[in-house]
Amino acid sequence: MKRTILTLGFLFLSLVYVLAQNNQFPSQVWHKGNIYLNDGATLSGTIKYDLDNNMVQLQTENVDTFTASNVASFEIYDEIFGGVRKFYSLPYAINGSYETPTFFEVLTQGNDIALLCREYIATDTRGMNNSWGGMGMNPFFGPQNYSGYRLAFNYYFFKNGRLELYSQKRKDLFAMLPGYDEEIDLFMKKNRLEHDKRGDLLRITAYYNELQN
């Protein structure tokens, strides 16, 4: 009887831990992963990232902090939503005209164009019953709303050697992916894809790269 109670107690505590983890955004928890430094070194452990400040922390016996200036890239296994996520440090002017090393997550890439993003936590003004739609191929499969906040994204296309911010307007999507307007429009209608959803944009960009080959 005692063993049964202890087992149930352990399962309850485990469930509470999982629920607590799931009530946090990915940037607020530690993930297993690797950091690849500019000098060629690879560091492995548990990782927490901060895109607002372009920093990544590595926890082994101690906690070490690295900036985008020191890091070429890093990757994590996101246990909240599942899937491996990869981030690269690229020169970009987030504010003003001065370019500094900045972390971007790569969603999909081809020979001609890559789709990247930067996540941020936004106030949810749309109600608490919304969930991510059109997730498609992206690694996130959980809800985006937590206590009045949601995970939001800015998207960027990397082409011709430069990063371009995507306005998330339909007409600008075709400008970012030129030359195949009819094919992309048909692909979006056939698969019911939106022009401003993470998973849908991933699929559209991957399809565009296929058309280019």
Rank of each mutant, 00 (worst) to 15 (best):
N213R: 14
F158Q: 14
Y156W: 07
E99S: 14
L15Y: 13
M55E: 14
D172I: 02
E105W: 03
N23F: 03
N23T: 03
F158I: 11
L6E: 10
S167H: 03
L58W: 02
Y156I: 05
N138G: 02
N160I: 01
T60W: 00
I204R: 06
I94S: 07
L51G: 03
M55I: 15
Q59I: 05
G127Q: 05
K2R: 13
G148C: 13
K159P: 01
Y98W: 00
P139A: 04
R203V: 08
A20F: 11
F81S: 13
L177R: 00
Y180P: 00
L90H: 06
N160T: 05
T7C: 10
S89F: 06
A68E: 05
F153C: 02
Q144T: 06
L11V: 14
K48M: 09
S147G: 00
M55V: 15
P26I: 14
I80G: 07
I76P: 01
T67W: 05
H31D: 00
K48I: 05
K197E: 12
N38V: 10
Q21H: 08
P91T: 09
K2G: 03
S27A: 12
G9Y: 07
L107R: 09
F10V: 15
D181H: 08
N154Y: 04
G148I: 13
D39I: 13
S44N: 13
F81K: 09
G40L: 07
T102V: 09
Y17V: 06
G161H: 04
D172H: 07
R192P: 01
T205N: 01
F25C: 09
T4V: 14
D200W: 02
N34V: 06
R203L: 14
V84P: 00
G83P: 00
G161F: 04
K159V: 03
P143M: 11
N145I: 14
A68L: 08
T100A: 09
V63T: 12
T100D: 02
G9I: 11
M135D: 06
N22M: 14
S14V: 11
G40A: 08
Y49D: 01
L177Q: 01
G134E: 11
G142H: 12
P26K: 13
G33H: 02
D50N: 15
D78H: 11
E99C: 03
H195M: 10
T123L: 08
T42F: 02
L8V: 11
R85N: 07
N130K: 12
S69H: 06
T108I: 03
D185C: 00
K48A: 04
R126S: 12
P91M: 11
